[in-house]
Design a binder for these strands. Structure first.
Lengths: 158, 158
DNA sequence: GATATTTATCATATGCACATGATAAACACA
DNA sequence: TGTGTTTATCATGTGCATATGATAAATATC
C-alpha cells in the first residue's frame, strides 16, 4: 500500500469532517461508524491531527472535531505527515541518501516518479476530494475485512 | 516505504546475483553478507524467486543461485510481485475498485500518478540497475539499523 | 455544584512482517 | 558408499502498526 492504514483513516476522517462539520463539531462516534473504523483508534488519530493544527477539537457536550484549516488549503501531505516517515521514501532501496554513489538511469527515472508522487500529496487538497459524491470517502472500504484468515505472505496458493 | 522490506532484499539480491553469478552460481551466505541481510530469511526469499522462475537454484557443492532470465528482460515488477499485493495499490484509500462511485479530479490525477509508478516497475529492468558502480545495490543500506530504539510512531519528538 | 457528555490518555492485546535456529533433503566428489 | 556442502523446510521468536477497553479530564447545561 502506498500510505499506511492510519493515514487512510486520517484522510477519510478529515474529508468526513469537512463535509459534515461546517455548522457544528462532529463527534468521533458518528465518524467511526460512518467510516467503519475502530472508534478509540480513530480518536487517537484525530487527537494527533488536532495537536498538529489540522483539526480543532473540543470536549464535553457540543464537543467534537472541526477543520482548523479551510479544506481548500489543506493538503493530503499535511494530513498524512504525522503518520508517515517521508525520509524513507527517497530511495527505491530504502537508503536515505542515494544519488551519490550510483546514479544510474533507473535512479534518475525513479527520482522523477518519486517526485511526482510527493507533488501529488503536496498539491492535492482535501477540497479536491469533495467531488460529486460529497462523502464518498466515508464509504466503508470494501470487502468486510477478511481478517485472521491464514493468508500466506503473498505467494500464490499452489 | 513504497515497497516492502522483503521486496528491497529481493531486488538487491537479484542485482547481486546478476553481477556475480555469470560464471558460477552464487551462494546465499556471501549474498547475505554483502547485503547485510539475515541469511535464512534471504534464503527463503530467494527460494520464492526460484519457485517463481526468476532465479535458478541448485543444492550441494556447486549449488547456489543464478538468474533464470537475462537481466535485460527481468523487470522490477517481476522480482517484487511475489512480495507485494498490487491489488491494494489502485485506490488511494485502499479500495480495490474506486473509479465507479466517485470520480473526482483528485482521483483522476491519482490514477495518473499510480499508473506511472506501475509503469516504472514494469519497464525498469534489473540491467538498468547495473550502472556505474556495478554492485551499488549490494551496498548495505545506511545507518546500521537503529533497531529496538523506542521510536514514537512518527510524530515529532516534542 | 451536580450531572451528563465528550475528548484525552493510559495500559494492554492482537496480527503480521520480519527474523532466527534447527533439521531435512539434494547434490558433488572422492 | 560416505562425507561435506548447500538449499529447502519447519518451528518458533520478535517488534511494530493496529486495535481494544477502561479511566481521567474538560466542558455545557441545569
Amino acid at each position: 500500500m502506498w500510505i499506511s492504514g492510519t493515514s487512510q483513516y486520517a484522510i477519510r476522517a478529515v474529508v468526513h469532517v469537512a463535509v459534515h462539520g461546517e455548522d457544528a463539531p462532529v463527534r468521533v462516534g458518528p465518524i467511526a461508524e460512518a467510516l467503519d473504523v475502530p472508534r478509540n483508534y480513530l480518536s487517537k488519530t484525530l487527537h494527533v491531527l488536532a495537536r498538529e493544527g489540522v483539526l480543532k477539537s473540543g470536549r464535553g457536550p457540543r464537543g467534537g472535531f472541526q477543520l482548523a484549516v479551510p479544506a481548500g488549503k489543506l493538503s493530503l501531505a499535511r494530513v498524512t505527515a504525522p503518520f508517515e516517515d517521508v525520509a524513507k521514501r527517497h530511495c527505491l532501496l530504502g537508503r536515505a541518501h542515494c544519488g551519490g554513489v550510483h546514479t544510474c538511469a533507473a535512479h534518475a527515472r525513479w527520482e522523477d516518479v518519486s517526485k511526482s508522487l510527493q507533488a501529488y500529496f503536496a498539491t492535492t487538497m482535501i477540497a479536491d476530494l469533495l467531488g460529486e459524491a460529497r462523502d464518498a470517502a466515508a464509504i466503508p472500504v470494501p470487502p468486510p475485512r477478511p481478517r485472521a484468515t491464514a493468508r500466506r505472505p503473498c505467494v500464490r496458493r499452489n
